[in-house]
């Protein structure tokens, strides 16, 4: 023991030791650092701020903040009510349709139960739905179906297909194959396999995701009005345009309250089913 201790030179080892760097390779490390720095300079440089305009705006911002104390629910109550109702109905119908439609797409997009051509088709629909922001899709649907909540509803249903379809398909791909095998071994048909081998395994998460998507759909429904697809967003936009910040504040508060309620409810549902 003592001879070993003597032969080990702790001093030299300590001198040679360096704190471990975040990135192993020296060359890569400095490239990343330099790149990040360069990007920050260029990126921040590309932001043009009109400070004179901003200074003017700050006064407006202060007025906007002041409008929250107290918010004005009364003046445009009818418009607000109409907008909120539209948003809520869009949310309900789009979630229902979206969920119903997402099931076949999810089944088609799960590699372990769908044949390749169907798989590719379903995956590409899901990919398109996920790539574009809801608002862009709403623009296209408004052009097709005309202004109003129907376009918004279809938009949200389409987005729901992408969201639920992808997550559900991944769930189906991750199921315990032995359970499905056991059902198949009883001589069950393909639909019986779905009902007994797969559905029980993915149902709790499916319900949880549905509740979560309901939540998202309401939030999104609040902006679709900006492109004419119905909902509270339109009311909010026009109140902001007319500088009626009291009404805007009231709308924002209502949105936040409903989102909170939805979130609370969806959290409760998710806990209940799991």
């Amino acid at each position: 023991m003592t001879t070993a201790a003597l032969s080990f030179d702790a001093r030299a080892a300590a001198r040679a030791w360096r704190p471990p760097p975040l990135i192993e390779s020296v060359w890569l490390r400095y490239t990343v650092y330099l790149g990040a720095l360069l990007y920050l300079v260029v990126g921040l440089g590309s932001v043009e701020v009109n400070w004179v305009r901003a200074a003017e705006g700050l006064e407006r911002g202060a007025r906007f903040l002041a409008a929250f104390f107290p918010p004005d629910f009364v003046t445009h109550w009818f418009d607000i009510q109409e907008g909120i109702l539209e948003s809520l109905t869009m949310t309900v119908v789009s979630t229902v349709f979206g969920v119903i439609l997402s099931v076949p797409f999810a089944l088609g997009a799960a590699r372990n139960i769908a044949p390749l051509p169907i798989y590719l088709f379903c995956r590409s629909v899901i990919a398109i739905s996920r790539t574009f922001q809801e608002v862009i899709i709403a623009i296209l649907f408004v052009a097709m179906f005309g202004f109003g909540p129907l376009a918004g509803m279809i938009t949200l249903a389409f987005a729901t297909i992408g969201f639920l379809g992808k997550l559900l398909a991944e769930d189906i791909e991750d199921i315990d194959p032995s359970q499905a095998e056991a059902v198949r071994a009883t001589g069950a048909s393909w639909f019986q396999l779905l009902a007994w081998g797969i559905q029980p395994q993915v149902l709790p998460r499916f319900i949880g995701l549905t509740a979560y998507r309901f939540d998202i759909n309401f939030r999104e429904s609040a902006v679709l009005g900006l492109v004419g697809a119905g909902g509270i967003g339109d009311t909010l936009n026009s109140s902001l345009d007319r500088y009626e910040f009291g009404t805007s504040a009231a709308i924002l508060l209502i949105i936040i309250a409903i989102v909170l309620a939805c979130e609370y409810a969806s959290g409760w549902i998710r806990r209940a089913v799991q």
């Binding site: 590309s46 901003a54 609040a222 909010l236 989102v259």
Partner: peptide, 28 residues
């Protein structure tokens, strides 16, 4: 955290454009 999450970025943008004028800054 809750207030920030409840409001869509497009709505934030609407408000910020009124304050800071149109442009990237409001977007960021």
């Amino acid at each position: 955290i809750v207030a920030s999450r409840s409001v869509n970025s497009l709505i934030w943008a609407l408000i910020l454009v009124i304050i800071f004028g149109p442009g990237m800054f409001a977007g960021i």
